[in-house]
Design a protein around this nucleic acid. Structure first.
Lengths: 202, 202, 202, 202
DNA sequence: TGGTAACCGAGACGGTACGTCGGGTCTTGAC
DNA sequence: GTCAAGACCCGACGTACCGTCTCGGTTACCA
């Protein structure tokens, strides 16, 4: 027996309301921008009482996070199936992924939600932890799997700390986007791959 | 031609009020955290009318930014004099700087203000531009000067894009701090220097 | 004649719940005061679902009324047996009753429930009607019986409208209590009897 | 020196807002009834921020009271000039006044506001005190002045307690109205005058 | 050396949103 | 079919701040 619940009765939760709230949140972030999104606005748009939001989420950030989470993975238990292409050529594969990532960040439609999410994460450690667990980890695991394959193929140092490799690869892109300190071009994506591979070559 | 001013009269600005506002802002960010800092709170703490804040700053973010700016550089026109140590050993010099940076980020007293600043920057392009100009650039210029010296000493590839070098060097640290995705140890600082130098060696 | 019921099934009504609700209502009015009594509070205190209250009472006022009603008459069908003392001396008998009434109003324990009841009655005609029927009438009938006895004894004008007599006798006391416009002393009670008897003497 | 203020700055109070709030309150009580009047509703109708109401009135009851007060006396310092007709015939004069009072109570337009006021007064001693001072007293004083004139004319016992006379005269009417226990006819008004004069004749 | 224009502290104002309470309805599972 | 429990939509509560707007009082430049 795991535990008698203390939280509100999950079983009776209205799935209809939950979906409406997440959808309304996503729409509002896109339409009016993160700063002007309010719990009241979400409730009104979703046709839901404010209490229903407060009952299930501890903060505005948590709602935004869940809205983003629901967006990024299709199904409930999803995420395990993520895998990067493996053509045997680590450079080509990484460049393809990095170019795609750069393009995603540059896409105006993705811009607002991701910035909203990051704004919440900066000042909320709990949310940051959730971000790492639920959003970053599955993707990072997939990337690390591909890197491990490259290690076995002798394209990458066997001793390399894969977390560090990922940071060197992605953090410059992320920082450039966050601070708007430069353009996110395909060439830039390629350059980061080249640098990383040179730094971690066997 | 002086032009009939439209901006408030800079000459008559009360320096006492300006300082009180910036000090109050810094104190409040440290005490109650970024989220709970309000213009009203700053005005009350500073013993200043709200209008005096609105007269000179366009947004809460701008006040926070200025408070941070006043903190980071001692004098008004300061910043040009910044220079990194140059012992001739680029590896040792960078490691010293990176360890100091890591320690700074790890310091709890610096934590809250920097996070507050970043929270504002994420969603405010104007503020991000100001950040790059006023805070990041002077420091980056100093770092680039040291890197250029290393290039001349043959310790770094002469063709290396120094902006890119700085990104590879610092962005992983910044991202790890922002997302709290790992500890900021001296060893980590050293590792980033090693990797960067390997990636950009001649 | 049974008739297909439209009302909920009286037969299945839980007497335990009914009593718990009325008791909880009385306690809460005494403890936190009329204004802070809520249906939710009553349900929680009584260990009863809100629906059980809504099933049997149309409004908060009705619950309060019933709680008061259950308090004032001992038995279910009670009330018919009420009779005022009749010593043959109408003045003495009325003064005894009026002094008791004044004391009751002055009693702090009775204060809050009666005020709660009156607050509901002022703005709810249905409740006012119920009040007249179920609470005021039995008592008034007993008083009128005593007055009729006084008429036969020649102590009161035979033509006097007994409803009017009761109003002249009681209304000043009631108003003084409701508006807190003066003390409810035994002397005041006596004075009202004196005045009334003088006004309606044969 | 009376006292340095603790309350918000009375001098800067917006008379326009004050009037708008009182007018909106009066309108809403008439239109939707006391129970459905809310601070939010008043603020919206008056085109005023809620805070402006909370700044100057401690409770909904206080606003309703002031709205009623502003209605009943024309000017600020007004009320002292109130005087009842004095034809020398106390019976005729009182009957005229009582008939007018009965008519007023029976008037549907006056009904709702007065009931709203009484509902607040029942459970709020502070408001009851204000009611006695600001609303009841001036009127009562005028009535007592007329009664004193009747005493001098030998139409009323010289020893009569005038407060008591007023209660005997008005309380029955008030109670009948409050509890809706009977019609407020001119004949009823006359009867109360007859009874009172008989009870207090010299 | 007095006028005047912009500053200043203070805080009232019309608003938006907060997070909470409670109203009355509806659903679930136990009895 | 009632009951305890409690989720739901909704409206209102009283509070916190927003950014704008006077209000007197002070300060510094100009005539």
């Amino acid at each position: 027996m795991p535990s008698t619940r203390k939280r509100p009765d999950q079983a009776r939760r209205s799935e209809r309301s939950r979906q409406a709230i997440l959808a309304a949140t996503r729409e509002l972030i896109s339409e009016v921008g993160y700063r002007r999104v309010s719990i009241e606005g979400i409730a009104a748009r979703a046709g839901v009482g404010k209490q229903t939001i407060y009952r299930w989420w501890p903060s505005k950030g948590a709602v935004i996070f869940d809205a983003f989470l629901a967006l990024s993975d299709g199904g409930e238990g999803g995420g395990e199936g993520i895998a990067l292409p493996d053509t045997g050529d680590i450079e080509a594969d990484l460049k393809a992924v990095m170019r795609a990532t750069a393009a995603e960040f540059a896409d105006a439609d993705f811009e607002r939600p991701i910035r909203a999410l990051n704004a919440e994460i900066v000042n909320d450690p709990d949310l940051a932890a959730q971000y790492r667990e639920k959003l970053a980890r599955p993707v990072d695991d997939a990337k690390k799997a591909r890197l491990r394959s490259a290690q076995q193929a002798g394209q990458l140092s066997a001793e390399a700390d894969l977390d560090l490799v990922l940071e060197v690869l992605y953090a410059p892109l992320f920082q450039r986007w966050l601070h708007r300190s430069g353009p996110l071009t395909p060439e830039y994506a390629d350059a980061l791959v080249d640098i990383t591979l040179r730094a971690f070559r066997p």
